[in-house]
Design a protein around this nucleic acid. Sequence first.
DNA 1: GCGAATTCGGTTACTATATAACGCGGGTGC
DNA 2: GCACCCGCGTTATATAGTAACCGAATTCGC
Lengths: 172, 172
Amino acid sequence: MAAGQGSASEMARALDAAEARCVRSGAQLTELRRQVLALVLEADQPLGAYALLDRLKAQRPGAAPPTVYRALDFLLEQGLIHKVERLNAFIGCVEAGHDHGHDHDHAHDHQFLICGSCGATIELSDHAVAHALADAARRVGFQLRKTTVEAEGLCAACLAAGAGAAVAASPG
Amino acid sequence: MAAGQGSASEMARALDAAEARCVRSGAQLTELRRQVLALVLEADQPLGAYALLDRLKAQRPGAAPPTVYRALDFLLEQGLIHKVERLNAFIGCVEAGHDHGHDHDHAHDHQFLICGSCGATIELSDHAVAHALADAARRVGFQLRKTTVEAEGLCAACLAAGAGAAVAASPG
DNA sequence: GCGAATTCGGTTACTATATAACGCGGGTGC
DNA sequence: GCACCCGCGTTATATAGTAACCGAATTCGC
Ligand SMILES: [Zn+2]
Ligand SMILES: [Zn+2]
Ligand SMILES: [Zn+2]
Ligand SMILES: [Zn+2]
């Protein structure tokens, strides 16, 4: 399974880091946005907007689709979360807690590895992949703005657990 | 703009190649499937399922969502088209007409470059990108099954036409 | 020939994902 | 007070995708 934020203190630290990041960029991490971010972070796999909405309703009974989509848009702009296109789902950015690096540039190159067996989604920041794609684009005169690199397969844990055999040769 | 199938003869050749490919894999390229494939191929950019449905209704008034989705599923399985995840849209595979290569393996590694200005979508089959991603996955013990590599930006034509400046410094 | 099984696709209904549009309340500047 | 912006509640709608049922056509076994 993917990690999520294991403990309450980890979660608090992550939310504080998000707060700091927003302050630096002149944005407000409001109560709603913080709640949605917490829901994304505490999940152990990417959650769809409506799954988040269901959970949010526990704290905010009047919540509707625009409630959660607006918060998600904000969190995406701030680089605190990513959207997994293949799943139409959202996941916390593993680098969001880092104070160093691309502070002013709220996007960063990343790749997702999505386990088809357990749903775990691993975020990578592999420069070789990013560079290879940039090179390929440059070769055809294309100027990159934003990349989406996602792969589906089997994570190490599921491979070790024999899920590979189970999936590849399922008796069904 | 992207190419689509420029002429009627190109289209006929592409459809015949698709037919041959289906025969080899024991599948039937029925009239419906051929119509949907033709609609995908004649477009100069990726089309969504409902855009295809609208066009299909001209030839097949009773068409409904399942009509087009079933045809699209078939065409995807045969490797004749791809889905662009970022757009929820479908585009013809540039390699579908080739008799050589991965005949029995109906998927192939590919990448899309999507122009945010004109909508042109370029399909690449860049081995360096595919290998870099495979390496990154192997390094964390992840077994790849299917990859999605898509980038948004500006195509060469739009850059040359000054769309870069227009987009980057639009007076609005 | 006849029934079983399969494939294809018409049809209805529905679920899931995402956005448009309106309006209100609270803060800020003046 | 008033204009302005922002955040968000609220309603309605748009877009994307699927489930389930049905009947016609084909194939296969007998
Ligand atoms: Zn990230
Ligand atoms: Zn797994
Ligand atoms: Zn292709
Ligand atoms: Zn362009």
